[in-house]
Simulated assay, not measured.
Amino acid sequence: MDFALTDEQRMIVETVRKFVTTELEPHEDEVERLDEVPPALAERIRRKALDAGLYAANMPAELGGGGLDATSMTLVERELGRAGYALQMLVARPSNILRACEGEQRERYLLPTIRGERHDCLAMTEPGAGSDVRSMTTRAVPDGGDYVINGTKHFISHADVADFVILFATTDATTGATTGRNPITAFLVDLDTPGLTVTRGSACVSHRGYHQCELSFTDCRIPAGRRLGEEGRGFDLMGEWLGASRLSVAATSVGRARRVLDLATGWAAERSQFGQTIGRFQGVGFPLADMATELEAAELLTMRAAWKLDQGTMTDRDAAMAKLYASEALARITDRAVQIFGGMGLMAELPIERFWRDARVERIWDGTSEIQRHIISRSLLRPLGS
């Protein structure tokens, strides 16, 4: 197997890493302190990302995007992962679901999002429907040439800065009541639509400045032309997005773990106790070795899944393995880094405690670790009839 990057991929890595180092990392402390990205700063970063050709890198070139394949895009996600979400998400990667836009939807949603003129968020999770998305109760009822939507979504990332939401709702409550599997349909809903209210959710310890919100729909009426894809086929669109999203979480976890390992290694090489640098003690050196080994394993699983996606052979199990291992490796690596830094690892003066806090959510969103293990175990047992 050839693990070498192409010249183009090396250039991509160098370009994104330089952008992260010069345009994102210097603002991390400010965002952490404010729990906000100041609007002027956000616009400046977006503009620089557009000028650098990094914006919408996951979208087809013929639509104005970067046209990167899955492997190259995973490298981009890995490098952006070195920075916090509030800043790295300004280098937008629009939801792949928008590729399903047709006709007027392309001009109203897809193309402006690729150009950086509009911003999307995705609404799937509900207070009573997290991992079990089929049990969602937000409902869109046909009414003449419209749909009328009622229900609540929560934990919706960056809805407070989005222009429209990619909404998943059930369109046949009768079927769901008898089978327990609600047919789901996707919709495009502008955030200023009457009947839709967006409120900031509770404060979160992870990724300050990157907010989760609650969306309340009360007799929210949208034209039937805002339905995305076929009625009742939203779960298929959701499945396509989840695979790419889980791969993105894995890549982001790898990038952040690399930054944490670099910081911990530097500290161990410089900090002296008992007449020598602490890295010479096995109690510090061996954890560093474990961190480096786990990081390499996480990266290999992630890049393997990306390569398979390019070949059209990536399975749900491949994405689940990458997301599971990389996110849990990040948790272990950040925890060991805190221990290596000692008391300073918990001080806000250094970024280690922030990485430690931020790492916690990676094992929850886009499918918990338990869901990933369920996917993997079912893929092993199903062929045996179990």
Rank of each mutant, 00 (worst) to 15 (best):
A92L: 12
E25C: 06
G116H: 07
D29V: 12
L215Y: 00
D236A: 12
V249S: 08
A331F: 07
G130N: 02
E231W: 01
T197G: 01
D335R: 09
C101N: 12
T152V: 04
G343W: 06
I12R: 06
P38E: 07
F164P: 00
E14L: 09
N58G: 14
T193I: 00
L288W: 01
G266V: 00
L54N: 11
Y210L: 04
A348C: 11
D290A: 14
L247D: 15
A4M: 11
I97H: 13
Q273C: 15
G243A: 15
D146V: 01
A40G: 10
D172C: 05
H154S: 00
V189G: 01
T137W: 05
A268G: 10
S131D: 13
G279I: 08
I45T: 10
F355I: 08
R256Y: 05
M89H: 11
G345R: 11
V13I: 10
L196H: 00
A251E: 07
S379N: 13
R246Y: 14
W307R: 07
E230H: 06
M59H: 11
P127I: 00
H158G: 00
Q105M: 04
E270Q: 04
D132E: 10
A297M: 05
N58C: 15
P39N: 03
A186Q: 04
V13A: 07
V198I: 04
Q212F: 02
L381N: 15
G84L: 12
T199F: 01
V254T: 00
E231R: 06
H207M: 12
I149P: 02
R99I: 08
R258F: 04
L24M: 09
H27L: 08
R47K: 12
D69G: 14
I156V: 11
M347R: 15
I12L: 09
Q282T: 12
E25W: 02
R46K: 05
G176S: 03
F235H: 14
G128I: 01
C213E: 03
S157T: 04
L228C: 08
P183A: 13
T15V: 08
A326T: 03
T277P: 09
A298L: 02
R82F: 06
G345N: 15
A348Q: 10
M347N: 15
L380W: 14
A162I: 02
V31A: 10
D146A: 02
A320I: 12
A257D: 04
H154P: 00
A329K: 13
V361F: 04
G234P: 03
M321E: 13
L111D: 10
R280F: 06
D236V: 14
A289F: 05
T21A: 15
S131H: 15
M59L: 14
A322C: 07
D310R: 09
L330G: 13
L34V: 09
V91D: 08
M73H: 10
G285N: 07
P183S: 02
G151R: 05
L80H: 08
A348K: 14
E214Y: 02
Y210C: 09
L54T: 05
G225M: 03
G209W: 06
R139D: 15
E14A: 04
E36Y: 08
I222C: 00
C220R: 06
I340E: 03
L122H: 03
G195A: 00
R46P: 05
M59V: 10
D335Q: 03
T197C: 05
P60N: 10
G128C: 02
D35S: 09
P351D: 07
G343V: 12
D318W: 08
K18Y: 15
D120Y: 02
C204D: 03
